[in-house]
Amino acid sequence: MNPHDVHGKNVMLQDGRGKVVDVSDFLKQEPCQMWDDLKGAYGRFYRPWLSRLPIPEALLNTVRRGYRVWRKSGRA
């Protein structure tokens, strides 16, 4: 299985661990840029700076929308 279509709405937290809740696209063979971007953001921003803070859902949705705009702009 390959990670594909992994984003904040397809992942949930249970007992302190992340769980992927939508694996329907994991059988796709092509690489997923969203997965690479998510891993990079986790290591660069979340883990060192934000892991101890509660993050409001509104902020997560703003980041998600901003990511979509950024990817569509072609600057990624």
Results as ranks from 00 to 15, higher is better:
17 R>N: 07
41 A>H: 03
62 T>W: 04
35 W>Y: 15
71 R>I: 11
56 P>K: 00
18 G>E: 02
53 L>Y: 07
70 W>V: 11
73 S>L: 11
29 Q>S: 13
12 M>D: 02
13 L>G: 02
53 L>H: 01
72 K>E: 14
6 V>C: 06
44 R>N: 10
32 C>E: 06
20 V>K: 02
28 K>T: 05
72 K>C: 06
36 D>S: 15
57 E>H: 09
48 P>G: 01
16 G>S: 00
24 S>D: 12
64 R>W: 14
70 W>M: 10
17 R>P: 00
9 K>I: 05
36 D>K: 12
20 V>E: 00
8 G>L: 10
42 Y>R: 07
2 N>P: 05
49 W>R: 06
74 G>R: 02
9 K>W: 02
58 A>L: 05
2 N>E: 01
53 L>D: 02
2 N>Y: 03
55 I>C: 15
39 K>E: 14
75 R>E: 15
42 Y>V: 13
38 L>R: 00
21 V>P: 08
30 E>D: 14
66 G>F: 07
56 P>E: 08
17 R>Q: 12
6 V>K: 00
9 K>Q: 04
7 H>V: 01
73 S>Y: 06
5 D>A: 12
2 N>D: 02
46 Y>P: 05
24 S>A: 14
65 R>S: 13
21 V>S: 00
31 P>H: 04
48 P>L: 01
74 G>P: 08
52 R>N: 15
28 K>M: 04
45 F>Y: 13
59 L>N: 02
36 D>A: 15
25 D>Q: 14
26 F>L: 01
55 I>A: 09
12 M>H: 02
47 R>W: 08
47 R>Q: 10
19 K>C: 08
35 W>Q: 03
1 M>S: 07
4 H>Y: 15
58 A>R: 07
11 V>N: 03
25 D>E: 15
19 K>E: 05
68 R>T: 14
58 A>D: 14
35 W>H: 12
32 C>T: 06
36 D>G: 12
11 V>G: 06
66 G>N: 13
29 Q>H: 13
23 V>H: 05
9 K>E: 08
38 L>V: 12
72 K>W: 07
59 L>Q: 08
75 R>W: 12
69 V>G: 00
22 D>G: 09
13 L>R: 09
22 D>K: 01
71 R>G: 01
4 H>L: 01
13 L>V: 12
12 M>R: 05
40 G>D: 14
72 K>Q: 11
62 T>I: 12
31 P>G: 01
43 G>I: 04
76 A>E: 04
51 S>C: 11
53 L>G: 00
65 R>K: 13
73 S>H: 05
43 G>D: 11
67 Y>T: 04
60 L>C: 14
71 R>E: 12
20 V>M: 08
53 L>T: 00
7 H>N: 06
73 S>R: 05
58 A>N: 06
